[in-house]
Amino acid sequence: MNFFMSALKRDLLLVFRHRNDIINPLAFFLMVAVLFPLGVSPDPTFLSEVAPGVIWVAALLACLLSVDGIFRTDYEDGSLEQMLVSSESLYLVVLAKVLTHWLVSGFCLAIISPLVAMMFFLPEQGYFSLVVSLLLGTPTLSLMGAIGAALTVALRKGGVLISLLVLPLYIPVLIFGAGTVQAGAMGLGIQGYLALLAAILVLSLMLAPFAISAALKISVRS
């Protein structure tokens, strides 16, 4: 556990030294969301209808955008290799990195999402479900995205490739996440949706770090 905390501390420190890394996903999230009223229609009834889907898609893309860099710098300066050969559990290293990514992307997105919800005229009773669904759903996005990032970290053209690998895997989270917000905005119960999101999160929390570790080993050896 001590090891996990120190790995987490290191990663968080690295992020805070590059503050832009925190701002960029949030700015991207806001910009993508703003494109929809500009591109389709600023009509409040239309916007409140599409708000759950649009906010979730924007959050998903923001997570995807930032996930590319999750192992990149460590790979380039060689510290990833040291982590692989160290005797400590790779599972915990990976978990610390994914947690850092989530704190920077998904967690912050969830916190500022009511702002976008307000701009989209989402009914106020839907705010709670929006924040909770993002808090439960985005960790899964970080975990799945990290698989793609680990597989492509040794390749020069990572960006587009990651989206091809990871976007199909994001579909269930998107469906249940946007479903939560829709149900919440209509004043229906959201426990069922949250249970499904949590189930997907638990499953990926168990399995994804193994896939990420195996992928990192392949990438470093290639």
Binding site: I147, T152, K157, L164, S222
Partner: peptide, 25 residues
């Protein structure tokens, strides 16, 4: 996705393993 990943690697051995992991996921 699998085809794209398979053709992205230059080294055959790592592209084999990487696509295997992706298809299992």
């Amino acid at each position: 996705g699998v085809i794209a990943l398979n053709s992205a690697f230059e080294n055959k051995a790592s592209s084999d393993k990487a696509t295997a992991i992706l298809s299992l996921v």
